Simulated scan of single mutants.
Amino acid sequence: MNTVPRDNHFIWLRYLAAFSIVFSHSRQFNTAPADYSDIVATLTWLFPGVPILFFISGFLISLSSAHSANFTEYFIKRVLRIYPPLWAAFVVSIILLFSTGMLPLQEVNWLHFFFWCIGQVTFIFVYHPEFLSHIGTGVLNGSLWAIPVILQFYLLIPVLKKIDELWLQQNKPHRIYVLLVACALVNMVFHYLHNTNPNMLLKVIHFLTIIPWLFFFVLGYVFSRDFNRIISLSKHWLPWLMLHVVVFFSLRELGFRWGRNDINPLLFSVLALVIIQLAFVPKSSLYWFNRLETFLARNDISFGLFVYHMLVLNTMIYFGIFENCWSCRMLVFISVTILVSIFSLLVLEKPIKNQRSNLIAFFSNRLKVTRD
């Protein structure tokens, strides 16, 4: 594993990816103007939020696992990063459903409601009961399908690192690239089948497993593993960005719709080079920019934007908020999503993060007692 500089600009890229997802889903408002939908569709295909977040996660989590004393510490850090805002979003969902009348008590199938609640606080986010289908897009918080995929990578990364260490000991470092190519082929074949011959099995694989998405995570791992070699491919991000844009529009003209979650691995590899070059450009000489970057990094709400935005969007659709004023609707949508994310950060995520060392020590001691 190469030495990766601690100073980076990933915070801006995480925000760009999060807002790519937010704006992409804003097209689901039934009052979205055609011009707006076309522009947003193109931009979010050029810069697809979910694959980029998966790639950045693969890169950073590979480093995080190396900096953790043991698997217990590593996994507790990851759980505390993911679950507090998810549970907060679940509580907000329950309050919204019953306090606003979106879900009348007499219409609830309580057995299905119980199963839905279990899914929302664990990892089964693909269960969408019929009694919630009348709200907004029909899926109260549909973005959460990505959470089980991320959790699977958290569990997989220690195994991947052990296998890769064995390959390095055998003087066969190229094998990780063989694995990466295999993941790329699986990704392409899956999305082709999923788009041309959709069925329940492919839907389950798509929304419940890491299989179609493993390429993005492994690519992030490879970039962190061979960081020095990859960062030296170019001294500037602009040529890679130009190549990405040219290839994207060329493929679109030829009839290939390689974008957003279905982005082709070859095209995404070019975009990944743009991301990694941008993440490690030299530090700015502008004092205010560096202060802003530090502030955003210490108060990161990018994950909150991802978690809460569909909840806000579906509530607004259900109540028809600002149906006749598109600019007002977007302003409220973005503002409320940001405010809820900030509230979640300050009230829940930061206090838990401040207790992370104590929680790691507690669970480590409990596990040690159990083993003894």
Rank of each mutant, 00 (worst) to 15 (best):
S64I: 00
M310D: 09
V246W: 07
L63N: 00
L160S: 01
I230L: 13
H25G: 15
I176H: 09
R291W: 15
P148S: 06
V332Y: 06
F333S: 03
L241V: 04
I352D: 04
C117Q: 06
N264W: 01
F115A: 10
L271E: 10
F98A: 10
G259L: 05
I56F: 09
Y318M: 02
N324F: 04
D372A: 11
I360H: 00
V139W: 03
F227W: 02
F153A: 08
S302V: 00
K162E: 06
D38W: 13
G220W: 03
I317N: 01
I150L: 08
F223N: 03
V307R: 01
L193I: 05
L311P: 00
V126Q: 15
I276T: 02
L132N: 05
Y308E: 09
L292V: 14
D7M: 12
L305S: 07
Q28A: 09
S143Q: 11
I118N: 12
I61G: 08
W326T: 02
I52C: 00
S364D: 12
Y221C: 05
N2M: 06
F215T: 01
A41V: 13
Q277T: 01
R291H: 12
N70Q: 08
V204R: 09
I317C: 04
L311W: 03
L233V: 12
I76K: 00
T42D: 12
H309V: 07
T42G: 14
H236D: 09
V50Q: 14
L16G: 05
I118M: 10
R229G: 04
Q120C: 08
L46V: 06
F280P: 04
L97A: 11
V204G: 08
N354R: 03
A32P: 09
N261V: 15
F153Y: 09
K350I: 00
R175F: 08
R298L: 11
V312S: 01
W167E: 06
I352F: 06
D38G: 08
I163G: 10
A69L: 15
F333V: 01
I135D: 02
Y177S: 10
L273G: 08
A88L: 14
N228A: 07
F125I: 05
N70H: 12
L193F: 07
D372Y: 12
A34I: 13
I334H: 14
I124M: 14
N197H: 14
P351W: 00
F90V: 03
F47Q: 02
L185P: 02
R260W: 15
F47C: 05
I82W: 01
H191R: 11
M102P: 05
W326L: 06
P282A: 06
S284T: 08
D7K: 10
R291M: 13
F125C: 05
P48K: 06
Y177T: 13
V307M: 04
S234D: 15
L267F: 04
L160E: 00
N171M: 08
M316Q: 12
R6L: 11
N70Y: 13
P33Y: 05
L168Y: 11
G142S: 09
L80V: 02
I317S: 02
